Computed example of a mutant assay.
Amino acid sequence: MVDSTVFTYTNKDFINDVCSVQQTRSRFDIALRSRWTEKRNAGLFRYHLDDLETRILPGPCSYIAQLNIMRGIERRKPQEILSVRQNFDPKQFNFNQINPKELLLELLKESESSCEARCHRNGSKRKCKVIINVSPLEFGHCLLVPEPDRCHPQILTHLAVQMGIETVLLSADPGFRVGFNSLGGFASVNHLHLHGYYLNHQLRIETSPAEPILSMCGSQSPHQCESYT
């Protein structure tokens, strides 16, 4: 019997230019949105997301402000944080303790290279669970939890960054966002996770000028550069 929660994908599923997609949704969008709606209708959230009051604040940064009173009231009480590098504490709440009904998807990337195939044969197949945020900010608000059984603290890892980027690339919706908040940055659970949700407002970071801070190529010509993923 096939597990319907497992979402398999390859690099061919990535959408690199969402602006070229005309009002269509990817397989990932369809799966995430439909399952999130099912969980909402089943009453698994702590409150309903009614029409939230949203404003674009005046000023050059165009910050987006949203009034979500119920999140302030119903959100899980944050754990005591003493350091941004605080160790994982199995006695505290973590995402291995959630209600199984809160699981949306389990992301599984199919091997496309010999390196990935070797990793899979060695039993180190990476896993990333997608679960609902029971105190949501926006429609589709979910948590990406890489390798939950390894009990990583809320400190970014290479895999977490990669999973965040790949999840964004799996969506055809330009409003799908992925973000990370650290300990001391309003993270309430010290168990590695990222946030994903749909927000139909442009963020300043999307159009801000940027430049590379580290070249992976050095003095090599472009065709000699290795690909780092």
Rank of each mutant, 00 (worst) to 15 (best):
M1Q: 15
S4R: 14
T5I: 14
V6Q: 04
N11H: 10
D13Q: 01
D13W: 10
I15V: 12
I15T: 07
N16C: 00
C19T: 10
C19S: 13
V21G: 02
S26K: 06
R27P: 03
D29A: 09
L32T: 04
L32Q: 03
R33A: 07
R33H: 01
W36E: 02
T37R: 12
T37G: 00
E38W: 02
K39H: 04
R40I: 13
N41S: 12
R46Q: 00
R46W: 08
R46F: 04
R46V: 07
R46Y: 07
Y47S: 06
H48T: 15
L49V: 04
L52T: 10
L52K: 10
E53T: 10
I56C: 03
I64L: 05
L67F: 02
I69W: 05
R71T: 06
I73F: 04
R76D: 05
K77N: 03
K77H: 13
Q79C: 00
S83D: 15
V84C: 09
Q86R: 04
F88G: 01
F88A: 10
P90N: 14
P90G: 12
N94I: 08
F95M: 01
F95D: 08
Q97F: 11
Q97Y: 13
I98A: 04
N99R: 12
K101E: 15
L103F: 11
L103W: 05
L104V: 13
L105S: 03
L105Q: 04
L108I: 12
E110P: 03
E110S: 15
S111L: 05
S113P: 03
S114I: 14
C115T: 13
E116N: 01
E116R: 08
R118I: 14
H120F: 11
H120E: 15
N122I: 01
G123E: 09
C128K: 08
V130G: 04
I132S: 04
V134Y: 06
P136T: 09
F139D: 05
G140I: 04
C142I: 11
L144F: 05
V145N: 02
E147T: 06
P148D: 01
D149I: 08
Q154C: 06
L156G: 07
T157K: 10
H158G: 09
A160R: 09
V161S: 02
V161H: 11
M163E: 14
I165W: 11
T167M: 08
V168S: 15
L169G: 04
L170H: 01
A172H: 06
D173I: 02
F176K: 00
R177F: 03
V178T: 09
V178G: 00
V178A: 07
V178C: 09
N181P: 02
N181E: 07
S182P: 06
G185S: 14
F186S: 14
A187N: 01
V189L: 06
V189R: 03
V189T: 09
L194W: 09
H195A: 06
H195S: 00
G196K: 02
G196M: 08
Y197C: 03
L199G: 06
Q202L: 07
Q202E: 13
Q202T: 11
I205D: 11
I205P: 02
P209A: 10
A210Y: 15
A210L: 14
L214S: 12
M216F: 12
G218Q: 12
S219V: 09
S219E: 07
P222I: 08
H223E: 15
H223A: 15
C225A: 09
E226V: 09
S227Y: 09
Y228K: 07
